[in-house]
Each structure stands twice: as structure tokens, then as C-alpha cells.
């Protein structure tokens, strides 16, 4: 993951993946993956399970190093996620630290970045408010419901003002109702902060509902078989958007692509 200081104007892309390839000793998982993410864009990665969606996301976030190819972003951090990127994992119970209160958990990225205590507290309160969790900072994560814990994880991802959120099946561990709420929270945060997101999901409806673009991974090794532009406009609504004719068409288009292989 090389930092590229001469990266072109920010308006073009906040993340550019070029010919990324991931090879393990026994097999090649990802081949020739190239795509860009523009500011405030939500790109959803879908594909059959085991195809390598999570591997790709981990390469984007610097949690794994791609065999060849490049991931270009602004700034970088050795052996970790670049500072303007944040990762939201599926399993909030393994990602939030159970021995720390909610406020401290949320402020953790700032603490790692050396931000002072009072500023950390102030900022943590602020993002907790943004995700609808005012007044929870003195509680422990495990005192909250699953959906609330994932909100805490999202707040933590937002605390350091990232430009890109990497989300790995972020809503797979919560019930359907909570899932809708968290999807709308994601859309609202994007609208308010202009953060871009790459979101891995196995749920095609979710990909179409959230995405500005859906990238379908398929084949072995996996490549981007199809990039579907989601022309549903904004804002979106759980009832009317999902019930619309165009939604059904896009959903079928994505599903057909996944089924081809």
C-alpha cells in the first residue's frame, strides 16, 4: 500500500484500486481488481460467499497486503489503516473493547492519534449524538443492544473525520428492523458528512438500497464482473424505494450477474 503524494485532485476519487491481485500459496483469490471511489460515494461489493469480498476490503484498509497492484489514497500508515479511512467490522462484540466504556471506545482512534483528553471527550460525545446515542458514553458496550453497539462502532469509525468508511457486512449481526435503521443511518451520515463508503454485503437488496454503485465480484480468481450504477436518486426510503419498479430491475440485474457463475 503505497502512499502517493502526487495523487490527482481530490474531486476525482478518494480511493483508487489499480490491478489489485491477491495470491495465496495454493490459489489466487483476487485478480485484476480496479475501481475508484469518488467523494461521498457509496460503493457496495456483492458476490457469492467465499469469493473474496472481505479479503478485498481488508486490502483496501491495509489490514492485509495485496500481492500486486496498488491501493492509492491520501496518506498512509505502515502496517495499518490510513488515517482518513475507518473500518467497521461485522462483529461489534469483537471490535468494541468490553473493558472500556462507550465514550472511551469511540475516542480510541483519537487516543491512538495522540489527541488530548478533553478534545477526545468532546468529539466522542459529538459523534455519539450523530448516531443517536446521546448519554451512553459512561455505559459499557455490552450493556447496549446489538444495534446500538454497531452504532457505537460506526461512531468510532466517524470520530476522526474519515473520508472513506470501509464496512464489512456491518449489519449482518442485527435483526431486520435494526438493519433498516442502520442502513438509513449510513445514508444520513453520508449526506451530512460527505464520507464515502465501500460496503461489503451478501444482501443484494441492501446493496441496491444503499449503493450509488454495486460491484459484483465473481469467478475464480474473483474479478469485478459487473459494475451496476444505481440510478435511484436520493433520498431513499425503505418503503417506497424498495417497492419501486426500478429497484426490482436493478436487483434482478445484480442477482443475474451473481447467478451466472
Amino acid at each position: 500500500m503505497a502512499a502517493d503524494a502526487s495523487y490527482p485532485a481530490e474531486a476525482t476519487a478518494v480511493l483508487a484500486v489499480d490491478s489489485l491481485r491477491m495470491t495465496y500459496p495454493t490459489k489466487t483469490v483476487l485478480a485484476d481488481i480496479s475501481f475508484e471511489v469518488r467523494p461521498a460515494e457509496i460503493v457496495c461489493l456483492v458476490g457469492p460467499s467465499g469469493i473474496g469480498k472481505t479479503t478485498l476490503l481488508r486490502c483496501l484498509g491495509g489490514l492485509q497486503i495485496a500481492t500486486t497492484g496498488s491501493v492509492r489514497t491520501h496518506g498512509s500508515a505502515l502496517g495499518g489503516t490510513p488515517r482518513h479511512m475507518s473500518v467497521v467490522f461485522q462483529d461489534y462484540s469483537r471490535s468494541l473493547l468490553p473493558w472500556m466504556r462507550v465514550g472511551a471506545n469511540v475516542a480510541l482512534p483519537l487516543r491512538a492519534a495522540g489527541v488530548g483528553r478533553s478534545e477526545r471527550t468532546r468529539r466522542a460525545e459529538q459523534v455519539l449524538g450523530e448516531v443517536g446515542l446521546e448519554g451512553t458514553s459512561d455505559m459499557y458496550p455490552w450493556q447496549l443492544s446489538g444495534g446500538m453497539q454497531q452504532r457505537v462502532a460506526i461512531a468510532r469509525a466517524l470520530v476522526d473525520n474519515p473520508r472513506v468508511l470501509l464496512m464489512d457486512e456491518p449489519f449482518a449481526s442485527v435483526d431486520a428492523q435494526t438493519r433498516f435503521e442502520l442502513e438509513d443511518l449510513t445514508l444520513r451520515i453520508r449526506a451530512e458528512t460527505g464520507v464515502a463508503a465501500v460496503l461489503v454485503t451478501h444482501d443484494i437488496d441492501e446493496a441496491v438500497y444503499l449503493g450509488d454503485r454495486v460491484l459484483v465480484l465473481s469467478g475464480a480468481p474473483a474479478t469485478i464482473a459487473r459494475s451496476v450504477d444505481v440510478d435511484l436518486g436520493q433520498p431513499r426510503d425503505q418503503l417506497s424505494t424498495r417497492a419501486g419498479h426500478r429497484f426490482g430491475e436493478l436487483r434482478s440485474e445484480v442477482l443475474r450477474e451473481i447467478r451466472r457463475y
Binding site: G61, G62, L63, A77, G79, G80, T81, R83, S86, V87, F89, R94, S95, L97, L108, P109, A112, A113
Partner: peptide, 8 residues
């Protein structure tokens, strides 16, 4: 992963 994602 949390450690790396948080740049600790």
C-alpha cells in the same frame, strides 16, 4: 484487527 484499523 481493531488495533491495526485504529493505528495503535
Amino acid at each position: 484487527d481493531t488495533r491495526r484499523a485504529l493505528r495503535m
